[in-house]
Design a protein around this nucleic acid. Structure first.
Lengths: 190, 190
DNA sequence: CTGCTTTCTTAACATAGGTGAATCATTTTA
DNA sequence: TAAAATGATTCACCTATGTTAAGAAAGCAG
């Protein structure tokens, strides 16, 4: 999380920020396959992953699961609509590996932003970056075929391909595991 | 734009904010079908639509166009990746109807945020909302079929359905105009 | 009003990706 | 180490959406 702060705000940050962060957040460790937040409930925290991996997924009326986000070290994850607005969440958030994360709840988040305006800035920029990367994802999803999306994903996130099971990557890309398997076979033959 | 400010920060805002906004932004009017920003170039402005409608689209290697965003009054639009980071943009932004918008360029945006910390907050929250709504869109795109997406779109954005040509809505939903036509026929028969 | 241009619809056919079921490989647990 | 989960692959068949092409409607400019 300190890394995120420095990356966004620059290397020399007021000492004060660290203290405030300590005050308004806490670390927690989880086993693998632990449900951190459940659809229907209020998503209480945003999670900055320090170690391990986490994903969020949505289950539609038909019962199909779709991966919304994948997060490893230095990523953050939450159900934005729920966390930021207080609405019931539509996403489930679950650890994949044993995970250590920094948690901030909504009240502390607001307090943090009121305690020092640089937090408003930090999170603004964090959101801007997230927005830009979501735009890219939408773009891929609506304008490229599955093979293209998989190739891009592998290129941009090789670490994910190594650590995350294929059926979750398939789901993240909007296809079924069988289809990803078929696509990979195809790619290897070329 | 004042409406956005009030919606996000509450009704009673320091007078100062209006003055700063005036200082660091300007209004401009455009005819319909005017290109505001072009792929490959630096996307210089973010646009708050005061009147009219605007959309952004991406053209992939094959030459297929895909609508990234649709914006009418009280929406804002830009190529986030380019505007926020300075990279060349991948999107084209074009007016659909004659449009009046408030423009903020990158330097003024930064200056605005430095001039008053409430702007950091305002834009943070703006980004959070955009993020939540993009998440919803991704969710729909990867986990629901086209008919479902169109029904949701019509339900959530009836104004768009009235004003925006169908072929752009189709593209926004990630399908071809012929498919949307087929889907609509199907829906009417039910 | 007339003749463009833009948008929408329809239809026949093609294809990427989904479905369901079986098998194999790998990891976890007892 | 055996048994049970879990994850990946393959295959035959199916379906939603894409493609190509044509014409109908609607909007607009002269």
């Amino acid at each position: 999380m300190i890394k995120n702060l420095k990356r966004v705000l620059g290397e020399d940050i007021p000492e004060e920020l660290y203290e405030l962060l300590q005050q308004y957040s806490f670390e927690k460790s989880f086993d693998k396959k632990v449900l951190l937040s459940e659809a229907g409930a209020d998503c209480k925290y945003q999670y900055f992953i320090l170690e391990g991996s986490v994903y969020s997924y949505y289950v539609n009326e038909k019962g199909d699961k779709s991966v919304i986000e994948l997060a490893i070290e230095e990523y953050w994850i939450t159900d934005a609509a729920s966390y930021f607005t207080g609405k019931p969440s539509v996403a489930n958030i679950k650890t994949l590996e044993p995970t250590r994360a920094l948690l901030i709840n909504r009240e502390d988040y607001d307090a943090l932003c009121c305690a020092h305006p640089l937090f408003d800035r930090f999170f603004r920029i964090l959101m801007q970056n997230a927005l830009a990367s979501l735009h890219d994802r939408i773009l891929g999803t609506i304008s490229e075929d599955a093979e293209h999306r998989y190739r891009e994903f592998s290129r941009l996130r090789p670490y994910f391909v190594q650590r995350i099971p294929q059926y979750l990557i398939a789901s993240y890309l909007g296809i079924k595991p069988q289809s990803l398997s078929r696509i990979r076979k195809n790619l290897f033959q070329k």
